[in-house]
Design a protein around this nucleic acid. Structure first.
Length: 261
DNA sequence: ATGGTTGGTAGCCAA
């Protein structure tokens, strides 16, 4: 099975790219972030025409996540538990029946957190990461295949960006951010890309500004974190770099895991 | 050099 995560940076602007990519890559499950759309406006029909079931958790203007899947999920849960006052649409979970049994897949859009000295934004990011950790603890206790896929807005290691000095003060790379990410993985989750390659300087995001793509000035912030039961079935990963060179691209590209489920 | 680019929006904010 092919399971992908992709921050599409706006479904209205990216629908043609998305359809082209779905046709070419044919993932079994695609986790989307930053759909920037309410559920009612999401263009589900052309996606369904390609054979996908569509589940969204959107909001007006910002954020928003979706799960596209060739098989209909048996259960869908919207929103990250732990804060009833949080109105930002950043999390959706689907429970799927696969040949080997059950599979849980979450599409998550972790808060950016910049500017890091903002009294609200960075604390919100860290609090969200703590909530995600508590969610992961609960799910890991089930001892099921679980994939937490999404835009984590975390550069885990210095070799996950072109120039670490540029990111030193950034909410995506601050020591506290990376420590919170390690606390998550230390629960027993595997960074699937990192586990399947020795390559460094692998990126999933290139800024629109300052010719970042042309200079390969990128960062790796889109991740597939897998539970032990999912890691046992992990075969390989790939990053669809060429999508960044398409017309009207997202600033992120798809990150894909191949699994024997 | 506090840059420059895109998306959603009609609040210039978020990234």
């Amino acid at each position: 099975m092919k399971i992908a995560t992709w921050n599409i940076n706006g479904i209205k602007a990216r629908i043609d790219n998305l359809l082209q990519w779905l046709e070419a890559a044919s993932p079994d499950i695609a986790c989307l972030q930053e759909i920037k759309s309410v559920d009612e406006s999401f263009p589900r029909e052309p996606i369904e025409a390609l054979g996908y079931h569509v589940e969204t958790h959107g909001q007006k203007g910002f954020n928003g996540v979706a799960l596209l899947s060739k098989v209909r999920p048996d259960e869908v849960n919207r929103g990250l538990p732990g804060d009833a006052t949080d109105e930002q649409a950043r999390f959706i979970e689907g429970v799927f029946s696969v040949p080997s049994g059950v599979l849980r897949v979450c599409s998550l859009y972790l808060p950016n957190g910049n500017p890091a000295d903002d009294p609200v934004k960075y604390p919100y990011k860290l609090a969200w990461m703590e909530r995600l950790k508590r969610f992961a603890e609960e799910r890991l206790a089930l001892e099921e295949p679980l994939i937490l896929a999404g835009d984590y807005n975390v550069i885990p290691q210095p070799h996950d960006c072109f120039d670490p000095s540029v990111w030193a003060q950034d909410a995506l790379f601050l020591p506290e951010t990376r420590a919170a990410f390690r606390r998550l993985t230390n629960l027993g989750l595997t960074d699937a890309v990192r586990a399947t390659t020795d390559a460094v300087k692998l990126y999933s995001f290139w800024d629109y500004q300052a010719g970042a793509w042309q200079k390969n000035n990128g960062i790796r912030i889109d991740h597939l974190l897998t539970s032990p039961e999912a890691t046992d079935r992990l075969i390989s990963t790939e990053i669809d770099r060429q999508v960044r060179s398409w017309e009207k691209p997202s600033d992120h590209v798809p990150v894909i895991g191949h699994f024997a489920f």
